[in-house]
Structures are given as structure tokens and as C-alpha cells.
């Protein structure tokens, strides 16, 4: 893949803002539009832009596949773990109201962590699929 300098510079400029926006969508998802899925996809898209513009090996050095492989599972485990935590505290599975003294706060924490789990899984799976496709090219 031949690399255009202008595209590389612009992509490097945009790259941190895309990641920042992804984090904003992730953690602001309970107030504004967005949530774990959208944030994960935007995060992955940011890294993919970096990989396409700067080079796949640089992106792989930044986010190595060996790191993504466990993260794929960790996201799902966080989600399930929050559900189990609710059970340990005497509620139903995935009932967040028992996570804190105030049910509203419990719901808030529950949704925050569940969305985090979704975000981690989505971002790492999307990147993994992209890496797998790109690895087939050369």
C-alpha cells in the first residue's frame, strides 16, 4: 500500500480526536446519544484509519493483536460479571438496583460498567476482524 504524505498527516491529526470522541460517546452514552456499541465501533474506526494511512505494522505495534485477543473476552466477562455481582448482592441476574445503596446509583453504575464491557468487546472484535482481513493481503 503506497502511503500519501498528506493523508498520513491529516489522519494523524484526526486520530486523537476520533479516539477522544469515542471515549466521550462511551462515557456520555447515558446522557446523550451513543453507548458502548457506537463507542467501540468509532474507536476501532479510528485505529483502522491510522492503520490505513500510516501503516498496518504501526497500528499493530500500537494495539497489538495479542492484547486484543483477551480483551474480546474480557468485555463479555465484565458484562456477565456485573450481572453476577447483582446476584451476589441479593438481586436477580443483571439487576443493577442492588449494586449501590441507592437504586438509582446502582442502575447508573451497572449501566456504566455494562456499556464499558460492550465497548471493549466491540472495539477489539472489530479491530481483530480488520487485522485478520489485512493479514491475508500480504
Amino acid at each position: 500500500m503506497d502511503k500519501d504524505e498528506i493523508i498520513g498527516v491529516i489522519a494523524k491529526l484526526l486520530f486523537p480526536f476520533i479516539l477522544l470522541f469515542a471515549l466521550y460517546v462511551q462515557f456520555h452514552g447515558d446522557f446523550g446519544p451513543g453507548g458502548g456499541f457506537q463507542a467501540g465501533v468509532i474507536f476501532a474506526a479510528g485505529i483502522i484509519l491510522y492503520a490505513l494511512a500510516v501503516g498496518l505494522e504501526h497500528a499493530m505495534a500500537l494495539v497489538p493483536p495479542a492484547l486484543l485477543r483477551p480483551l474480546m473476552a474480557i468485555g463479555v466477562l465484565i458484562y456477565g460479571g456485573v450481572g453476577l455481582l447483582g446476584m451476589l448482592r441479593g438481586g436477580h441476574y443483571l439487576n443493577y438496583s442492588v449494586l449501590a445503596h441507592d437504586p438509582l446509583h446502582g442502575q447508573h453504575y451497572g449501566i456504566l460498567f455494562v456499556e464499558l464491557g460492550v465497548g471493549i468487546t466491540v472495539a477489539s472484535v472489530m479491530l481483530m476482524i480488520f487485522y485478520a482481513f489485512m493479514a491475508r493481503l500480504d
Partner: peptide
């Protein structure tokens, strides 16, 4: 007053439809 989140889509997706 059950979830207390301004974005109702998120509260339905993550809590009611967990």
C-alpha cells in the same frame, strides 16, 4: 425515576433489555 438517565435508549438497552 427507576433508572434516572436522560437517554432513555441507553436505559432500555442496558437495563430493561439487559
Amino acid at each position: 425515576h427507576e433508572i434516572g438517565m436522560p437517554n432513555m435508549v441507553t436505559s432500555i438497552l442496558a437495563s430493561y433489555r439487559g
